[in-house]
Simulated assay, not measured.
Amino acid sequence: MTRYLLLVLLCCWSWSYQAHGANDSNFTMPKLPANVRYFHDVPIGQVGNVQLYIDIAVPAQALATPAPAIVAIHGGGWRKGHKNKFASKIVNFAKRGYVAASLMYRLAPDHPFPAAVEDVKVGVRFLKAHAEQYGVNPNQIIALGSSAGGHLAAMLGATGNDDSFSTHGLWDDVDSSVMLAVTFSGPNAEFDSQFADQWSSITKFLGGKASSRPDIAKAAMPISYLDANDPPFFVVHGNADNIVPVSMGRTFVEGLKSAGVEHRYIEIEGGTHKLKQSAPQAQKQAYQQAWQMIEEVIAAQEE
């Protein structure tokens, strides 16, 4: 069976599954260009009583040559949000020639740390395990997220060589490393601060106040795992962030420097947590620079 025929069959299966998917959350299929295929609610596997799903958008050119992949991770304070939010976004990524996926993860407080980290890592492993099926280059996966999604993208970057989160028994013969992590407004450090103790999102994510569980607080921070073997990071934070203090971004960048990890940091003057509202032009420029770094990292690997 040719790869093209396999992809057509998968596409038909995906549309059939969409009609019966248990994870729709008011899903609306985005408008698809002729050269993009969309797979909605592809089942990854069962974790406890939760079925994990992934959405994948595939560009036609991935049929001929495996393409880099972008995994997008939604925010929402680890407590809310849905992978379906990124349906249009991953279609736009596919239009640029990337395989793109939106990852589901279990939400706090019902599923505190490390559940969300385990789930995004198994999403990456699933994509790598099915690389040929979806036309993915398994060595060229980029993690991208904002807010809590930025934290999880940073965890993917920082824990690629750490096996402590491979506890599902799902695709655990495949590694979850990524080649670049892009994190906007991410709470990537300072879970041990007084502020973190007062922030309900972190408290519910950790399953209690950080001060009462310092080991868990440390284990939940991307900064705790940084070392010289980590992939590059692209970090963006607004200096007027009213939800995730800019100090969390600055401290994380200092950690990147200390560990000798390649990175670029953009601090947006006057940017609040919602950069699109507070600094739309600066946010747009930051995304343009993120794309530039993505392309540079891919080109460097291919040399």
Rank of each mutant, 00 (worst) to 15 (best):
L5I: 09
V8T: 15
V8K: 15
C12F: 05
C12R: 11
A19C: 15
A22E: 14
S25E: 14
N26C: 06
M29P: 02
K31T: 15
A34E: 14
N35W: 06
Y38K: 04
F39A: 09
H40V: 11
D41R: 12
D41M: 10
V42I: 13
P43S: 12
P43N: 07
P43M: 08
G45M: 08
Q46R: 13
V47R: 14
N49L: 02
V50G: 01
V50K: 11
V50E: 12
Y53R: 09
D55C: 05
A57Q: 13
A57E: 12
V58P: 00
A67S: 15
P68E: 00
H74E: 00
H74D: 00
R79L: 12
H82S: 10
H82F: 07
K83A: 08
K85H: 07
F86M: 09
K89I: 04
I90L: 02
V91W: 03
K95N: 02
V99I: 14
V99F: 09
S102L: 00
L103M: 13
L103Q: 03
L103A: 15
P109K: 03
H111P: 02
A116I: 05
V117L: 05
K121S: 00
K121H: 00
V122W: 00
G123F: 06
V124A: 01
R125A: 00
A131G: 00
P138E: 08
I142V: 10
A143C: 05
S146A: 10
G150D: 09
H151W: 04
A158G: 05
A158P: 09
S164H: 12
F165N: 07
T167W: 03
W171A: 02
D172L: 01
D172T: 04
V174M: 07
S177C: 11
V178W: 10
V178N: 09
M179P: 01
V182L: 11
F184K: 10
S185N: 13
S185A: 10
N188H: 07
N188L: 11
N188M: 15
E190P: 03
F191D: 06
F191E: 05
D192K: 12
S193Q: 06
S201F: 13
T203N: 15
T203A: 10
F205P: 04
F205L: 14
K209S: 04
I216P: 02
I223S: 04
S224Q: 10
S224L: 01
Y225G: 07
L226R: 06
D227A: 08
N229W: 02
F233H: 10
F233G: 09
F234T: 05
V235I: 14
V235K: 03
V236Q: 07
G238W: 01
N242F: 05
V244A: 08
P245I: 04
M248G: 01
G249F: 01
G249L: 02
T251Y: 02
F252G: 05
V253R: 06
G255V: 03
L256P: 04
K257T: 14
K257E: 11
G260V: 14
I268A: 11
E269Q: 14
G271C: 07
H273M: 08
K276C: 14
Q277C: 04
S278R: 13
A279W: 09
P280Q: 08
A282K: 15
K284D: 07
K284I: 01
Q285W: 09
A286T: 07
Y287N: 10
Q288E: 15
Q289F: 12
A290C: 11
W291I: 09
E296Q: 15
I298E: 03
I298Q: 01
A299E: 09
E303R: 12
